[in-house]
Computed example of a mutant assay.
Amino acid sequence: MEPGNLTGDSEFLLLGFSEEVELQPLVFGLFLSMYLITVFGNLLLILAVSSDSHLHTPMYFFLTNLSFVDICFTSTTVPKMLWNIQTQSKVITYEGCISQIYFFILFAGLDVLLLTVMAYDRFEAICHPLHYMIIMNPQLCGQLVLMSWIISILHSLLESLMVLRLSFCTKLEIPHFFCELNQMIQLACSDTFLNNMVMYFAAVLLAGGPFVGILFSYSKIVSSIHRISSAQGKYKAFSTCASHLSVVSLFYCTILGVYLSSAATQSSHSSAVASVMYTVVTPLMNPFIYSLRNRDIKEALMRFSGMPALKRPIVLGLKKCP
């Protein structure tokens, strides 16, 4: 095929997971269920925190932002995939593909940065408890979230503009269920050296950097917890960051698993299946992790739904059991 610049009428084909027609209803039902649970679970978490004045703290402020980003993150890819399965079409326009790349990178970057901000919040809460509310004041919390948005918007804009400079063949098949940046660069007919350099540099800076920050925060947290004399104090300090640590582990482990599996198998299909873990499963699991491991969230959800909240004496009594 002759290379050439794409026009507004050009189209891409998203090959998805399977070419077998009989499997399409199963894939549609599975992803529709996961998408609805993700949206409903994160939305319920946002409403429960917003409606409970006891949860108007920095930790839950960042949590509601993370839940909103998770809804947007999964909404960037799954609805289009469901629409293509329902209409038995694999087509996505050039404009639609560029838009999907932009919003996918935007919300993925926000996920990483918000998890880093939440690690810093837990660091201040455990390592400097007496000054926590002074340091993590509403102004600083707003500035941290705003900076996360600004950095993510600039990064996604840069990556999208870099894709716009590429030339493609007249017909393109993307072996994925969404327009993934690396796949787009690999399909380009023009020189992609600069695109690859920008992509790898951004990955190291905006994914590796925050990960190092999270590790540093938790190294200080673990050190502070070890200095606590009582076992009950250690448990209480650790429980305040257990949910966040679980979410961080799930997010980074699934992303690492995607790239290790794709590098080992060199299969685009395997990469597409593995990508489901951090694009769909992680946003799905986040509200469950925070609600199941956090008593305040569970009580807020019960109050929001009209159910009587658990009484503290009962919970304290259960803690004394061996």
Rank of each mutant, 00 (worst) to 15 (best):
M1V: 13
M1H: 13
G8Q: 04
D9W: 06
F12T: 00
L13P: 00
L14C: 02
E19V: 09
E19P: 08
V21Q: 15
E22D: 14
Q24A: 09
F31S: 14
Y35Q: 03
T38Q: 03
G41W: 04
L45Y: 04
A48D: 06
V49T: 05
D52W: 11
H56F: 03
P58K: 07
M59T: 08
F61Q: 08
D70E: 07
I71W: 02
S75E: 04
T77Q: 10
K80Y: 04
K80R: 15
L82Y: 00
Q86L: 10
I92C: 03
T93R: 02
Y94D: 01
C97L: 01
Q100Y: 00
Y102R: 07
F104I: 09
F104T: 14
I105E: 10
L106N: 02
L110C: 13
R122M: 08
R122F: 05
F123W: 11
E124Y: 00
E124K: 05
E124W: 00
I126A: 03
H128G: 02
P129N: 06
H131Y: 05
I135P: 01
N137A: 00
N137T: 01
Q139S: 04
C141T: 06
V145D: 04
M147G: 09
W149A: 02
W149K: 03
I150E: 03
L154K: 10
L161T: 08
L161A: 10
M162Y: 10
S167P: 07
K171M: 14
L172D: 08
I174M: 14
P175F: 11
H176F: 15
H176R: 08
F177C: 00
F178R: 00
C179I: 01
L181Q: 03
N182M: 01
N182S: 13
M184P: 01
A188I: 07
C189L: 07
C189W: 05
S190P: 07
N195M: 03
M197W: 12
Y200S: 13
A202W: 04
A202V: 06
L205I: 11
G208F: 02
F211M: 15
G213K: 05
I214Y: 13
F216V: 15
S217Y: 12
Y218I: 09
S219Y: 12
S223V: 05
R227A: 13
R227N: 09
S230R: 01
Q232M: 08
G233T: 02
K234V: 07
F238E: 13
S239W: 08
S239L: 11
S243N: 14
S249R: 09
S249F: 14
S249N: 09
F251Q: 02
C253W: 07
G257S: 11
V258S: 00
Y259F: 15
L260T: 09
A264D: 10
T265I: 09
S268A: 15
S268K: 10
S270T: 11
S270F: 13
A272M: 08
Y278C: 14
T282D: 00
P287W: 15
R293F: 07
K298G: 06
E299Q: 11
R303C: 05
R303M: 10
S305F: 07
L318P: 01
L318I: 12
K320S: 06
